[in-house]
Design a protein around this nucleic acid. Structure first.
Lengths: 202, 202
DNA sequence: CATATTTTGTTGCAAAAGCAACAGAAATTT
DNA sequence: AAATTTCTGTTGCTTTTGCAACAAAATATG
């Protein structure tokens, strides 16, 4: 999309640095990687096609992302969440370069690092959004959102940073249907609510 | 999230470069920017909160992204689509730094540029995904997806790069409901379909 | 501080989407 | 090339979600 990418040239450049990386061949239908908290892997798909997928408790498969040659992926980009294990599956035979975030980070200067981090934070934020939007019901969307807030604030009770009207717009659902679902969550004793204050009861 | 961001330090560093940028104060509820094709703006929100929003033809507002201090945004990250004009609205008084992609790009060396582009392409890809997932109905999700393929291939007819089963997983919808909707699109004469071949009739 | 505007909370009803099931086609494996 | 597996196409039924509407509460504005 933006400018020319030449991964094989890039790979050659890599050889001339001290940057640690590994290249692997992966067979069709095999697992390229699973996202593991704190490993902070960054991968580049050099050849082939792959999917980042998740199965939820109802057995629904979600394709989180489809990957093709030159795509970058890895748990660095994904805020790992207890409820979901992510797999990257080779759809065809693949060639993959594996890095660690910290190794790449060392290779950058001060001004670059700021941009690097702004990009990284942006992509993590987008992934949170995608994680919410891929949930199949209003209830799951809400619970995932509350769970993210709970992790962010490191508390079981927190104040919504959004009005309910805005929250519905953010989750792309009908506000009245959302309010109904919040009532259900209270009746089922999963949350308590007091104005914008939400408490997760588990 | 990853490492320490210090935007005011960053701003000072910027003063010592020849990088072109502008800083503006924007009042609450004012429009910070609209996304305009080919302007390739990159912005950093230095202070305040803002939303990236879209109104669809039914008047549904969608919050595409919520922005807070240190967040990066701009049309560089968004594949602009004829159906949707995006606005960035200040939720509080804001201070914003404006750059152009090309100016920032000049400031980077060869190895960096590859990573820079990989990041950029990744974020664009995520935005496409978010764009699809924020659509309110199966019909709109399908039409948006077809529209993206049509733009990517630069043709009104194209072959799906996914099975129908996978497409449903990608769009997070039920396969049978999706097939039913594809039938409707054919009956309404909006598309023709022959196996994995789709033609947009407009 | 009185008035206007926006947001919340709620409901009955309509529409959309999901679920289950299965036959036939296509693709893959042995 | 036969057998197995996966995918498509379809349908009736159920559940979920959206829509419309409105009163009460909260917030913003002159």
């Amino acid at each position: 999309m933006y400018s020319d990418l030449n991964i094989s040239e890039f790979t050659q450049q890599l050889q001339n640095t001290n940057l640690d990386f590994q290249t692997k061949q992966i067979k069709k239908n095999d697992i390229i990687t699973t996202y593991i908290k704190n490993r902070n892997q960054i991968c580049i798909l050099k050849k082939g096609n792959a999917d980042i997928i998740r199965y939820d408790k109802n057995g629904n498969k979600t394709i989180i992302e489809t990957l093709k040659a030159n795509d970058i992926f890895g748990e660095v980009f994904f805020p790992i969440n207890t409820n979901s294990e992510l797999f990257v599956i080779a759809k065809t035979n693949c060639e993959v370069i594996f890095f660690l975030y910290d190794d790449i980070f060392k290779y950058r200067n001060a001004l670059d690092n700021i941009f690097f981090n702004l990009f990284l934070n942006r992509t993590i934020k987008q992934n949170i959004r995608i994680e919410l939007l891929t949930k199949r019901s209003i209830k799951e969307k809400l619970l995932s959102y509350f769970s993210f807030l709970s992790i962010e604030y490191n508390k079981k009770d927190f104040t919504l940073p959004l009005s309910y009207t805005d929250l519905a717009d953010y989750l792309c659902i009908d506000r009245s249907a959302m309010m109904r679902e919040i009532q259900h969550l209270q009746k089922e004793n999963i949350i308590t609510k007091n104005g914008y204050n939400i408490k997760l009861k588990k």
